[in-house]
C-alpha cells in the first residue's frame, strides 16, 4: 500500500492510453530524440534494473522499485509491447514465477536515453 502511494505521489504513474504493439515504438521515436516510453520514471527504473541483470523476477522488481503489482504489470506490459523487455512465465517449484529480461532493442533504447541525458548536461555546461 505504501509503495503504491509512493509512486502515485510522484506523479510518474499517470494514466496513459493503452498502447498497442505496433504503435508503441512509433510513439517513442516520434517524440523528438527523447524516448518517452522509458522516460517515465517507473519504466526507466524497470529498464535500468534489468540492464544490470540477465533477468529479474516480478517479485524482485516489485520490491526493488517499490511499486504495486498493478503498476508493475502495466508498465512491464507497455515495455513488452514496445519490444524493450521480454517476459517468460514458469514455475519455481509450485510457485508461479514471472521473469523479465531486457531485449537488445531495450538496451539500445536505454543507452540512447543515457546519451541523450549526457548530451543535455554537456550542452548546458557550455
Amino acid at each position: 500500500m505504501a509503495a503504491s502511494r509512493k509512486i502515485s505521489s510522484t506523479g510518474s504513474a499517470q494514466a496513459e492510453p493503452v498502447v498497442n504493439k505496433a504503435a508503441a515504438p512509433a510513439r517513442a521515436r516520434n517524440n523528438g530524440d527523447l524516448d518517452q516510453l522509458i522516460h517515465e520514471r517507473s519504466r526507466l527504473g524497470l529498464v535500468s534494473a534489468l540492464a544490470s541483470h540477465k533477468s529479474m523476477s516480478f517479485t524482485e522488481l516489485k520490491a526493488l522499485l517499490q511499486i504495486s503489482d498493478g503498476n508493475l504489470s502495466t508498465h512491464a506490459r507497455k515495455l513488452e509491447e514496445a519490444g524493450y523487455i521480454e517476459c517468460s512465465k514458469g514455475f519455481d517449484g509450485r510457485m508461479p514465477r514471472t521473469e523479465y529480461r531486457l531485449s537488445p532493442s531495450g538496451r539500445k533504447a536505454l543507452n540512447k536515453y543515457i546519451a541523450h541525458m549526457e548530451a543535455l548536461i554537456a550542452a548546458m555546461k557550455k
Binding site: H39, R41, L44, G45, S48, A49, L50, A51, S52, H53, M56, E60, A63, L64, L65, L110, I114, M117, E118, L120, I121, M124, K125
Partner: peptide, 23 residues
C-alpha cells in the same frame, strides 16, 4: 533541464546498483 538530466542519470545508476545487490 540540466538538473533533471542529472537526476535521471543518478536514478538510473542508483537503480542499477540497487538491482545488483538485490539477490
Amino acid at each position: 533541464l540540466n538538473q533533471r538530466a542529472e537526476d535521471n542519470l543518478r536514478f538510473i545508476r542508483d537503480t542499477m546498483e540497487g538491482a545488483s545487490v538485490f539477490t
